[in-house]
Amino acid sequence: MAQIHPTAIVDAAAQLHESVSVGPYSIIGPHVVVGAGSTIGPHCVIEGHTTIGRDNRIFQFCSLGAVPQDKKYAGEPTELRIGDGNTIREFCTFNLGVVGAGGLTQVGHRNWVMAYVHVAHDCRIGDDNVIANAVQFAGHVEVGNATLIGGITGVHQFVRIGDFAMVGFQTRLSQDLPPFMVAAGNPAEAQSAHLEGPRRRGYSPERLAQLKQMHRILYRKGLTLDAARVELLALRGTVDGGDADLDMMLTFLDQAQRGIVR
């Protein structure tokens, strides 16, 4: 049996792996599934159709799987899915999805989510992200992998943040932030290429230099976005491994609906 504190209330229909622990006064609803090795601290509420993977550490006072803050929601069985190996600190709120928007809020693997973070309905958050205190994601936000998002940042609905992007402290992000780019301010402005994350992942000096060149093309040469795409394409085949970064950037730009941070 899972290790459940006597004061916790766990619905008999909830599916908790035998290695899960649940702290005092937490409440877990009937449609919740929690995988092996996950720990749930005291005073947490986990409800709705919520699936939590393996080896997650959920700290006290979190609310996961509550109904979305959307007037269109009418009680449908939408979902929240959380992957493996995440750290979710105090007072985080992750909501269910809304039917008309896909009905799924999703958080990937190995994310480090600090206190007071809000993940609204139908957000998609990838893997290996560091999300600092009091970051607020509006509905439908998409976050890639290995991003760094500074504290007290607000992200507008439908905004996308690309892989390896970095958002500075107290930023208002209302347009898409391309991969490998750093943005900060209110409103956000692009500042530089983000090199430290890729460097830690083993990117070569030549590949890091190409990331800097990508930033110059997008933000320092005064080009239109169409002209910048042409110059980015011209970099193909010049750096070992660099074409993958170019493809990621070009795909992201092609899919931009709200425009990009400039």
Rank of each mutant, 00 (worst) to 15 (best):
A2K: 03
Q3R: 11
Q3D: 14
I9V: 15
A12C: 06
A12K: 13
A14D: 02
L16W: 00
H17S: 15
E18D: 14
E18A: 11
S19Q: 02
V20A: 08
V20H: 03
S21F: 06
G23W: 03
G29P: 02
A36N: 00
G37S: 03
G41K: 08
G41Q: 03
C44D: 02
V45G: 05
G48D: 01
H49L: 00
I52G: 01
D55Y: 09
I58W: 04
F59T: 00
Q60A: 15
G65V: 01
A66F: 03
A66Q: 14
P68L: 09
T78P: 01
T78M: 01
L80M: 07
L80H: 05
G83Q: 07
I88A: 09
I88Q: 02
E90I: 07
E90P: 06
C92L: 03
C92R: 06
F94D: 01
L96W: 03
G100S: 11
A101V: 01
A101P: 00
G102D: 11
G103Q: 06
H109R: 11
V113H: 03
A115L: 10
H118C: 10
A120P: 09
A120E: 07
H121C: 08
C123H: 04
G126R: 04
D128Q: 13
D128T: 08
N129D: 11
A134P: 11
V135N: 01
F137H: 04
N145E: 14
N145F: 06
A146M: 10
L148W: 10
L148N: 07
I152W: 11
V155P: 00
R160W: 00
G162M: 13
G162K: 12
D163H: 15
F164R: 13
A165V: 12
F169Q: 10
Q170H: 06
R172G: 13
D176V: 06
D176A: 03
L177G: 03
F180R: 09
V182I: 15
V182A: 04
E189K: 13
A190S: 08
A190H: 02
Q191V: 13
S192K: 08
A193N: 04
A193I: 06
H194F: 13
G197S: 14
R199I: 03
R200L: 09
S204C: 10
S204L: 05
R207T: 12
R207P: 00
A209S: 14
R216K: 15
I217N: 07
Y219S: 10
Y219W: 11
T224S: 15
E231V: 08
E231C: 11
L235V: 01
L235Q: 07
G241S: 07
D245S: 15
D247T: 15
D247H: 12
L250H: 02
F252V: 13
Q257N: 14
Q257T: 15
Q257L: 15
G259V: 10
I260H: 06
V261C: 07
